[in-house]
Amino acid sequence: MALNTPQITPTKKITVRAIGEELPRGDYQRCPQCDMLFSLPEINSHQSAYCPRCQAKIRDGRDWSLTRLAAMAFTMLLLMPFAWGEPLLHIWLLGIRIDANVMQGIWQMTKQGDAITGSMVFFCVIGAPLILVTSIAYLWFGNRLGMNLRPVLLMLERLKEWVMLDIYLVGIGVASIKVQDYAHIQAGVGLFSFVALVILTTVTLSHLNVEELWERFYPQRPATRRDEKLRVCLGCHFTGYPDQRGRCPRCHIPLRLRRRHSLQKCWAALLASIVLLLPANLLPISIIYLNGGRQEDTILSGIMSLASSNIAVAGIVFIASILVPFTKVIVMFTLLLSIHFKCQQGLRTRILLLRMVTWIGRWSMLDLFVISLTMSLINRDQILAFTMGPAAFYFGAAVILTILAVEWLDSRLLWDAHESGNARFDD
């Protein structure tokens, strides 16, 4: 018995066209964080690309023209004298008006014999932002004059995390709450300039795509075929072959399989920071003279006294001054041990922890910024005066060393310790 099946006739004509040209192939790229070699397709503007294995951002879609970056830099340069030299806060102490600005706080630190601690604050609040705007201006002028731009481009990517104007702005709020127990506070004209400078700096850093600047100024022929001998440069993120001198053909720094002496430098910085954190938390970090009496505060006791007036601000200072430094030390110690013992479990967790400490590390400088600003506000000789204690130097040095330890660690070593050939990683 035959089955009668109805015929289905399409209502619209289906047209099949042959592909007349070869589909576009992607360029081969190595991930600078996990060293995976993959094919990167062509990316349009405002599109980002991520590593298929570790999800690290390979290409950032946010990109401004150099002219727009230069305009932002010149605007920031105009704001800087007002943000640093004009009063941020006014207080009335014992019937006398006192003005506080950024430069005055750094000068008070240096004047009291601790120039190293003052230079830490100076670099993060004044030096690094000033280098940022002058570097962008150098790129703008240098591109037109045919100057060598490689050193500036190499420095810009590392400079971003040292620009800490946003953290200093939080420190202004913390210092205001600490001082309000002794005097009446009012915002100064410099505060508005400083807030504007923070906003412009944040926007500029978020749109400063150094890798795209490398592509514009020093374009290189990408690798179009897969080759395990391809290496990625950690300076400019170019994937290719080393030249005859073993250097990256684009930025001219040595092109090595792994960062040289990464573990040794990381261990040295980490152990030194552990040693410095002990006096930083045991010795007094601030000293207040009130009517001839002397009151010393460690980091913890200062947080407890701050909690009596504002528990939320005390929580912020606790996280930045105690929780973050010790968390960074514990995480980095764990990561280094996992590399030495070739741990194969929990790779995803370790990668996330490394990215976390990379982002939060700079916030530990908050305590030094609060001390710097408070020193310029309260300084009335023996009637009422505020000065920093010996722990300030140890704390600042420990924070900087932990930042350097994270920067010096080559994250690809975590993958080397893991089993080879993993296309995915999980716990």
Rank of each mutant, 00 (worst) to 15 (best):
157 E>P: 15
35 D>S: 05
169 L>T: 06
202 T>R: 15
31 C>I: 00
278 L>W: 11
298 T>S: 11
21 E>Q: 08
392 A>E: 01
315 G>T: 15
152 V>Q: 03
97 R>C: 04
46 H>D: 07
185 I>T: 04
68 R>F: 09
48 S>F: 12
79 L>G: 03
353 L>H: 09
412 R>H: 01
38 F>Q: 05
298 T>I: 10
36 M>W: 06
334 T>Y: 15
188 G>Q: 12
97 R>K: 15
19 I>N: 09
132 L>G: 07
164 M>R: 02
385 A>S: 10
82 F>T: 10
348 R>K: 10
354 L>D: 12
4 N>A: 05
176 S>I: 09
19 I>W: 05
98 I>W: 02
48 S>E: 14
83 A>T: 03
419 E>Y: 15
229 K>A: 14
355 R>F: 14
242 P>D: 10
391 A>C: 05
119 S>E: 02
155 M>Y: 06
168 Y>W: 10
34 C>W: 00
150 R>W: 02
346 G>P: 14
340 H>Y: 11
268 A>Q: 04
383 I>F: 11
295 Q>Y: 15
423 A>W: 06
264 Q>H: 04
145 L>W: 08
110 T>N: 15
206 S>Q: 14
46 H>M: 08
137 A>P: 05
255 L>D: 14
37 L>K: 07
2 A>M: 04
124 C>P: 09
164 M>P: 01
198 V>D: 12
356 M>N: 10
144 R>W: 15
11 T>K: 06
215 E>Q: 14
406 V>A: 07
346 G>E: 11
131 I>W: 01
120 M>R: 01
304 M>G: 14
168 Y>A: 09
145 L>H: 08
273 S>G: 11
31 C>Q: 00
329 V>K: 08
387 T>S: 06
19 I>S: 09
207 H>S: 15
106 I>S: 03
27 D>G: 06
370 V>K: 00
271 L>G: 11
398 A>E: 06
301 S>R: 08
332 M>W: 06
358 T>L: 10
165 L>R: 02
423 A>Y: 15
402 T>E: 02
422 N>F: 10
419 E>C: 13
56 A>Y: 07
169 L>K: 02
229 K>V: 14
86 E>A: 06
94 L>E: 00
40 L>V: 09
425 F>M: 10
110 T>E: 14
346 G>I: 14
53 R>Q: 10
135 S>M: 02
376 S>D: 10
353 L>E: 05
150 R>M: 06
166 D>I: 15
105 G>C: 03
139 L>P: 02
232 V>C: 15
47 Q>R: 06
377 L>E: 01
253 I>P: 04
283 L>K: 12
309 S>Y: 11
358 T>F: 11
427 D>N: 12
140 W>H: 06
361 G>L: 01
377 L>H: 00
415 W>P: 04
286 S>T: 10
302 G>W: 00
136 I>C: 10
106 I>H: 05
220 Q>Y: 13
100 A>M: 01
297 D>G: 06
37 L>N: 06
353 L>G: 14
188 G>N: 05
137 A>W: 15
180 Q>P: 00
290 L>A: 02
22 E>P: 08
73 A>T: 09
122 F>I: 09
169 L>W: 03
220 Q>R: 13
135 S>A: 09
406 V>Y: 05
216 R>S: 13
342 K>A: 07
383 I>N: 01
253 I>V: 11
7 Q>W: 05
200 L>F: 15
240 G>S: 10
266 C>I: 03
156 L>H: 12
354 L>I: 10
173 G>F: 10
279 P>H: 05
279 P>N: 13
92 W>D: 02
406 V>S: 04
188 G>R: 11
129 P>Q: 08
310 N>G: 07
346 G>C: 15
130 L>I: 12
372 S>L: 03
324 V>N: 12
32 P>N: 06
181 D>N: 02
369 F>K: 05
195 V>S: 11
111 K>D: 14
390 P>D: 10
11 T>A: 07
225 R>Y: 13
309 S>M: 09
60 D>C: 09
40 L>N: 07
162 W>H: 08
345 Q>D: 13
388 M>E: 05
228 E>K: 12
129 P>A: 12
294 R>M: 04
403 I>L: 14
409 L>V: 09
257 L>D: 12
268 A>E: 03
348 R>Y: 12
1 M>R: 00
296 E>V: 08
348 R>F: 13
253 I>H: 04
389 G>I: 00
211 E>W: 11
226 R>C: 13
59 R>C: 05
312 A>V: 13
25 R>Q: 08
308 S>Q: 14
426 D>Q: 12
175 A>S: 13
201 T>L: 10
132 L>P: 03
73 A>R: 01
387 T>Y: 06
214 W>Q: 11
23 L>K: 08
47 Q>K: 04
135 S>C: 08
82 F>M: 11
280 A>Q: 02
384 L>W: 02
99 D>H: 09
128 A>E: 01
257 L>P: 10
339 I>L: 10
381 D>R: 02
156 L>N: 06
179 V>Y: 01
65 S>R: 05
72 M>E: 06
302 G>H: 01
74 F>Y: 03
319 I>C: 13
256 R>K: 09
53 R>N: 10
153 L>G: 12
247 R>A: 12
343 C>E: 12
